[in-house]
């Protein structure tokens, strides 16, 4: 329990500095809405086609937004030499991972909570349903578990921002596929029964990569 408390302190630090600068949330928010608008230009069609395209558009948007915000998570720390300070704290590397992960999770969920209603409005679909919220939360958790690990890795390489997407997208492909399929079903008003197998895949991904990243994270930031 102590580890979790310490991790929450680190996450709180990120949230606090974010409330002062509003760097990540504002830019990711604007970016997400822009992506949705551009998709609307790209696929203008009838209401029926839009509904079948909606889940794909939604998850491409969130995946891109995720990369954008996860990249910032460590670049800020690195540029201001905060990572050294963080590593000198009397907490394990695993705790740093959990803290950064929870911080990013909070930012992503915050952005999604605003983007989803906007999306619903623009695409004329009903997104405020329990299955869709469950899918969003679980998939976002998957994004940040693996994204935090790779973000810490990317920031230490020469190419920095370019590294995260090329690593992140192939690895999260299974949960993007699952999230798109499950959201398609949820928007089509299907019952929990058929959605749950997809949710199971996403949850399994979350658990596996949360555990694995937790243990390998210390190898990524040791210096």
């Amino acid at each position: 329990m102590k580890t979790l408390n310490k991790a929450l302190v680190i996450a709180w630090k990120d949230i606090l500095s974010e409330t002062r600068t509003k760097e990540i949330i504002s830019s990711v928010l604007v970016f997400s809405i822009l992506v949705i608008v551009i998709f609307n230009f790209a696929f203008s069609g009838s209401q029926q086609t839009m509904i079948s395209l909606a889940p794909g558009i939604l998850w491409v948007t969130f995946a891109f937004a995720g990369v954008l915000s996860l990249n910032r998570a460590f670049i800020q720390e690195k540029d201001d030499d905060c990572l050294e300070g963080l590593m000198m704290c009397p907490v394990g590397r695993e705790t740093i991972y959990l803290g950064k992960m929870l911080g990013s999770l909070f930012f992503m969920l915050f952005v999604e909570a605003i983007v989803l209603p906007v999306f619903a409005l623009l695409f004329n679909v009903n997104v405020i349903s329990l299955p869709l919220i469950a899918i969003t939360v679980l998939t976002t958790l998957g994004f940040v578990t693996i994204g935090t690990l790779f973000s810490a890795l990317a920031v230490n390489t020469k190419a920095r921002e370019m590294v995260l997407p090329i690593l992140f997208f192939p690895i999260v492909a299974p949960i993007i596929i699952s999230a798109v399929s499950a959201s398609g079903m949820a928007l089509g008003g299907e019952s929990w029964g058929s959605i749950s197998s997809w949710l199971g895949v996403i949850a399994a991904f979350d658990v596996i990569f949360l555990v694995v990243s937790y243990f390998v994270f210390s190898f990524v930031i040791e210096e």
């Binding site: 690895i171 299974p174 949960i175 596929i177 699952s178 399994a204 596996i208 694995v212 390998v216």
Partner: peptide, 14 residues
């Protein structure tokens, strides 16, 4: 390590 662990998940999903 991560890449290899991902393989079974990819296969099941697809």
């Amino acid at each position: 390590i991560i890449g290899f662990i991902d393989v079974p998940i990819v296969v099941i999903t697809i």
